[in-house]
């Protein structure tokens, strides 16, 4: 599925601010994996996502998705295969455009640039309506309203819907519930679980909630200093407590997990 082979990235090379954000990181995901990622501040979690999504090109190493080499593919071409949600719920939608228009943009991914002059058809609208109703937020009756009028939680739910409207091969979730209030965060997380399970999407999720990291998905990675220091799955993970996880992290990284937003329970 996803095959990352010893990728490295240094920001501001050759200056006093040089920062090795990824150092020889390798990772393999199987189809259908739902992997949670935790790590200290500046461990390289978001940098890893940016490298996979193509926000920048890596200095060394290769990134393969289903055997296709993505290493030198620009971001907009990768985003045909990779869906992405950010922590900031405002980042994933265009506020000045209507819900319907936003969904139509997300739907473009399915058609690969063909028929650039086609308009939103009745069939598209019916599809959008049906998908929106699955969110149980009443958005299906507000399709002509600009997205800027929605709340952060509604916008994040819409972004999730847009990212999975055409099932991506890989879904990257970068603390996508962290900026929402607890009740909304719970709801968006439930939606995520449902959609990911239903469409069998391979998924990587960064979280700062230790318990969530162990409960969700089938595998947990811990990152430190631009590399993966701990990779647990299967039976071992099922029986693991947060305390054990933290101890294992310290053994792997050589220091305590240091994240100012960490939630232990």
């Amino acid at each position: 599925m996803l095959d990352i082979r010893s990728i490295s990235k240094t920001f501001n090379p050759g200056t006093v601010n040089a920062k090795k954000a990824l150092s020889g990181l390798s990772l393999h995901l199987d189809a259908g994996d739902f992997v949670t990622i935790i790590g200290s501040n500046g461990a390289g979690k978001s940098t890893l996502f940016n490298a996979i999504a193509g926000v920048f090109y890596v200095d060394e190493g290769t990134i393969l998705l289903d055997g296709q080499n993505l290493t030198f593919l620009p971001e907009y071409q990768r985003s045909r295969m990779i869906g992405r949600l950010f922590q900031d719920p405002l980042k994933g939608t265009a506020p000045g455009m209507t819900i319907e228009e936003n969904l139509a943009l997300a739907y473009l991914r399915s058609t690969k640039g063909s028929a650039p002059f086609a308009r939103i058809s009745k069939r598209d609208k019916a599809l959008f309506r049906e998908r929106l109703s699955l969110l149980h937020m009443g958005l299906e009756d507000r399709m002509k309203q600009p997205v800027g009028l929605l709340s952060g939680g509604q916008r994040q739910a819409l972004t999730l819907l847009m990212a999975t409207l055409v099932p991506p091969r890989l879904l990257l979730l970068d603390e996508h519930t962290a900026a929402l209030d607890p009740a909304t965060a719970e709801k968006v997380l439930e939606l995520t679980k449902t959609i990911v399970a239903k469409q069998k999407i391979t998924c990587l999720m960064i979280t700062h909630n230790m318990k969530q990291a162990l409960e969700l998905g089938n595998r947990t990675l811990m990152m430190a200093d631009g590399n993966i220091v701990l990779d647990v799955g299967g039976e071992e993970r099922k029986n693991m407590s947060v305390e054990q996880l933290l101890r294992r992290f310290k053994e792997g990284a050589g220091h305590e997990l240091d994240n100012d937003r960490i939630l232990l329970s």
Binding site: A53, E75, Y76, K91, A94, G96, M97, R109, F117
Partner: peptide
């Protein structure tokens, strides 16, 4: 034109360029 797929993409570019990059539009 601004109601077509290409037109929508152009409008989104001015509205939220982050979103455009992450949604397969160049």
């Amino acid at each position: 034109f601004l109601g077509t797929r290409l037109g929508l993409s152009i409008r989104a570019t001015g509205d939220n360029i982050d979103m455009v990059r992450a949604s397969s539009i160049n």
